[in-house]
Design a protein around this nucleic acid. Structure first.
Lengths: 157, 157
DNA sequence: GATGATAGTCAATGGTGCTTGACCAATTAA
DNA sequence: TTAATTGGTCAAGCACCATTGACTATCATC
């Protein structure tokens, strides 16, 4: 019986942790989102790698490959195939850096921006399904707190 | 200029989405948690696979391999190496199913439960750092809403 | 202008997480 | 009791994501 009690204890501890619940929620939402995006015809398969890379491409002037690699915490060689894939699809364009002839800047094309909008729209649809069950006020409240949490977490690293 | 505006638009849309912000927060928290757990000496490297498997082992009676595979959405062959690894470390024990001589049940050992507790404790520590910046009341409020969200998301699939 | 650092590419390689296919043993149903 | 299903294992292989190492071209410095 002692083992069972210890297990119950841990479950309680998990439920008491903001981070634990947050991580679980994030995974569930991510799964729903990826499924929604990939069930759509016309777009090529979106993988986790793409989702991880895209946030760093938000600079309208483009980003250097080295910079991307550093942001992601991997080597530049690791980034290259992903860029190539996105470029082939037409989501990004790679052009020479005007300030440095060695460097090249990766930047989102209109099509890439449209793809991001499409993905986000899918998330918003799920948002609505959630809000229907959670309540509009609660959802709004949650969204506000989460936005603040995001800032806190970015500063925490 | 049109492209830049479109990009700003998408950013706004992302920020307006509960799911988008949630996913980003979840990733950040997950990263912090994994780093905290793995920086601790004495425990073997924890990988995402372990983290994904563990929640399904919470049944004190153990879980069948087939059941685990179905829960994770992969084949049973894919689960086996992970089980083997956890078993070698001593976090789980595999014993014959009393009701079915073909089946085997995977169950957490005391050591496995301790490992889960250890990991969760690390998350709780991060919780506290967050609460210090976000505010105690806000954190409590967020935790409550997130817990409800978790239930909603589990039911949404 | 020589030197060392930096941006990027090419090539080879490795680990991980998964798959399919073939199989055995136990269970369930006909 | 035979046939079909189910739980699990073994083996081979594949895709993906990352690595290290070697190289070229440009830049920055002295």
């Amino acid at each position: 019986m002692k083992r069972k009690d210890a297990l119950e204890d841990v479950k309680k501890l998990q439920a008491s942790s903001l981070g634990y619940v947050l991580i679980r929620c994030g995974q569930l939402f991510n799964e729903l989102g990826m499924r929604a995006v990939n069930s759509e015809a016309g777009w090529p398969m979106m993988r986790e790698v793409h989702a991880r890379l895209l946030p760093y491409l938000e600079n309208p002037e483009g980003v250097r490959i080295t910079e991307l690699a550093r942001s992601l915490g991997v080597t530049k060689q690791a980034v290259q195939p992903v860029i190539a894939e996105l470029a082939e699809f037409g989501a990004v364009r790679v052009e020479p850096d005007p300030d440095d002839a060695r460097a090249r800047r990766v930047l989102l094309t209109e099509k890439g921006i449209a793809a991001m909008r499409h993905g986000t729209t899918k998330l918003v649809e799920i948002d609505r399904r959630v809000a229907r069950r959670l309540g509009t006020d609660e959802t709004r409240e949650l969204h506000g707190l989460m936005t603040r949490l995001f800032e806190v977490l970015k500063a925490l690293d």
